[in-house]
Design a protein around this nucleic acid. Sequence first.
DNA 1: TTCTTATATTTGACCAATTCCAATATAGAG
DNA 2: CTCTATATTGGAATTGGTCAAATATAAGAA
Lengths: 130, 130
Amino acid sequence: MTTASTLLREQGLRVTAARVAALDVLDTAAHLSTDEIATAVRERIGSVSVQATYHLLDALTAAGLVHRVDLAGFPARYERRATAHHHLACRGCGHLVDVDCSAEDGPCVHLADRQGFAVERAEVIFWGLC
Amino acid sequence: MTTASTLLREQGLRVTAARVAALDVLDTAAHLSTDEIATAVRERIGSVSVQATYHLLDALTAAGLVHRVDLAGFPARYERRATAHHHLACRGCGHLVDVDCSAEDGPCVHLADRQGFAVERAEVIFWGLC
DNA sequence: TTCTTATATTTGACCAATTCCAATATAGAG
DNA sequence: CTCTATATTGGAATTGGTCAAATATAAGAA
């Protein structure tokens, strides 16, 4: 098993209580907002500021240890799930569930004309009401 | 040709100078932000407040006369294009271009398990750098 | 172990996009 | 032309998030 601190070290990131706690928290629940993560981290290590949580999540995201799910109209949320998937989102309450990608490998949607863009990824969001 | 005022009346909306101007503006340019629309409307009718523009765009959106493109990290933009399409977005500057939908009719992405959601639409965003 | 230094965290100010509210103006029915 | 429901205005407030300076701390070197 790969512990949070090992993962952090592997990415050249310092191992701090807050970062370890954030990774642990995201291991047990998906789609948490910065605020929810800050609260959950506090339960584990006593205290963290919201700003530190923002910063720490930026660092984890940049290192690829977590993924940021940023849907318009709702605060950003974070997840650790590694495999390709999409999201089914409730436009009413923002509730989010994972949707397996229909394509086994590679993007399940393609782009014929790149129009001069360096395309990085395709994001698929199913909007509805839960 | 269907004029803006006819469209408004058809939807049971009052015909106001600001609404007509907003529809006209969106006829000539796509993907405009609320602020850009307010500015363009001012050039046509003299003045509008930003708040009125927000409100008016809400009304036009609710009536289905315009479509709101709301990508995380950038102010909402509006467009009038009727046919199904997706968007190619620059994560750097927010620049947005339309992408024809590969599927001729119906959604080009499907969902196997609805997980109790009333799914309304699938949004596909290609993220990259322009 | 202790020192050092680069990197994290904290605190607090600040910002942009948007919404809410009460007051005023106006479209369109009668 | 009048009346009333609906639009617009202006101002304040909210939300989600960034920025910058001061302080604390992880982890490599002595």
